[in-house]
Structures are given as structure tokens and as C-alpha cells.
Amino acid sequence: MTELQDGRGDNDVLDVAIIGAGPAGLTAGLYAARSGLSCAMFERLTPGGQLATTEHLENYPGFIQSTSGFELTMIMHEQATAFGARTIGEEVMAVDLAAVPKRITTAFGAYEAKAVIVATGSRPAKLELPMEPELEGRGVSYCATCDGNFYRGKDVVVVGGGDTAAADAIYLARICRKVYLVHRRDALRATAIYHQRLQELENLEFVWDSEVVNYLAEDGKVGGVRVRGVKDGAERDIAASGVFIAIGMRPNTEFLEGQLPLDEVGYVMADERGATEVAGVFAAGDVRTKVLRQAVTAVSDGAVCADEIAEFLS
């Protein structure tokens, strides 16, 4: 957002460029600014990342009643900028991390920085089935709280077995006639607290040990899915107007190809301090290799990376 760039000369070299302003990037900005570093957070949309689209946040310490992820990230952003972190509302398209200083190219300009924190997060994985691109927005959705209302009173399918799939199924069961939860295993990966809530839903049917192998389309819209048993190979067609995909995430790291070591899925390889193999380049939040991807671990990563950079630049 341009109004936040006031007073900045285009030739200034930033101490730290933070790519992505979700909880990891916003916390890195807060800590970097408080350490006296000049820093800018580059963000393609409004700050907040995935956390901002979380309707009810129940596991962020300090909030006993579920809070809105959007409100929380707005406060995080206000806090970081109050201490002097700048927000640049431009999407980063390419980086040159070997250059001195490091070079960041956005859709609208070029910037230089002594150090970089990659905090670009991740996005929902797709099933990668035929017809999927055409059916997105015509029955295929990656956001139950966004699109659930369009399927009020109808039958829908949720695909996945983690926390997102469980939360989506619970949400959709309140507004849809019937919810099928299709999972390729015979038990959910979701956190225990979701299991009982799911069991109590009368309009939920578990479809265990099954994978979606095809979309069934009617008049250019989703009419259902074909699932196949992973153990017996048996196929079954499920009629549904909506299919909600919650099969995990993919990191937003395409712009880093050839610049940073990535793992086989595309996550940025980083050590406990957030350091990558490239000097002065760190990674924080969901985009990095780690065990638990949550808002609370993202903010922790952001703090650690900013602290490491303060030391790196001293």
C-alpha cells in the first residue's frame, strides 16, 4: 500500500526485506524494527496470510474464546508498523540472493536489502485431476467458509483427513444436507478434539480408505466425484454439488527456484535458527521445513529469524 512507503528513497538499501506478511513475516517485522533495523514487509495482498482467512482461531495462546484470525493479524500488522516496519503492497516476482546487496524484484519495482527473510507461506494443494481448473468456482472449492453458503441444503464432499478437512466438514454439516468425508486412510490425522465433534454429526458419512479419482461434471458444474477404494479398488460414485479439497498445502516458493535449496515438496530448507545455506537469507513460517505448521510456530520463527539477522548484520 503506497501510503505506507512515505519518506522512503528508492535507492535506500534495506537492512532486511521480509517477503510475505503473514504471522511469520509480521512478527519478523516487529522484532527487526525493535532491533533498530530498517525493514520492509512485501505483501501481495492485505497483510495476514492464511491466518487472516481463519474464521475461528481456538488454539492461539491468550485467547480463551475463539478469535478471528483476521482481527488478530490486523493487530499484528498495526503493532509491527507502530515500531517502524514498512509494508510494501507489491508481489515479489524474483530475487537475486547471491548479489550484494540482495535484489528483490516486485511486480512494480526493484529493491535492495542486506538480508532477506522468506515468509511466503503456503496454499492449498489441488487434487490435480482432469477438469479441475474448469470446475474451480463451479463446485470445486478450497475454502469451506468462503463458499459453503453456496451449497446450503445440498450434498457436498470434503476430501482430506487433517485438521482443515475436519473443521471444513464440521462447518459444512451445519449448512449442508449431507457431508461425505473422503479420506485415503482408515483414521483421521486431525487433532483429537475434532474426532468427537465429527462423530456427533448426524449428516456426516465417513468414506474411509478412498481416493477421489475423477470429478463427475454436469452442465459444466460439479455433479459429484468418483472414489476408488485404496485397499479393494472398488469404485463408487457420490452425487454432490460441491467438493471441498483439504488435502494439505504446497509452499509458495516457485520464485525461489535456483536461488535457495528446497526440499522435494518445495519447502525452503532451513535450520533451527531459520538460516538457509545462503548467508543472510532466512526462512520463517509455513514456507520452511519444519514439524508443526501453525500460527504459533510461525510467529516464533519470525522472532528467531529477526534476531539472527540483527546478529548477522552487527
Binding site: M1, G48, T54, E55, T145, C146, N149
Partner: peptide
């Protein structure tokens, strides 16, 4: 858009700009 949609709220300031 819808008032209850998270990504819509993320988009709104960009759209205004």
C-alpha cells in the same frame, strides 16, 4: 464478494488501491 469471506477482506484494500 461477501462480508463473511476472509479472502474478500484480504482483497478489499488492493481493489481500492
Amino acid at each position: 464478494f461477501a462480508t463473511w469471506c476472509g479472502p474478500c477482506r484480504m482483497l478489499a484494500p488492493v481493489l481500492d488501491e
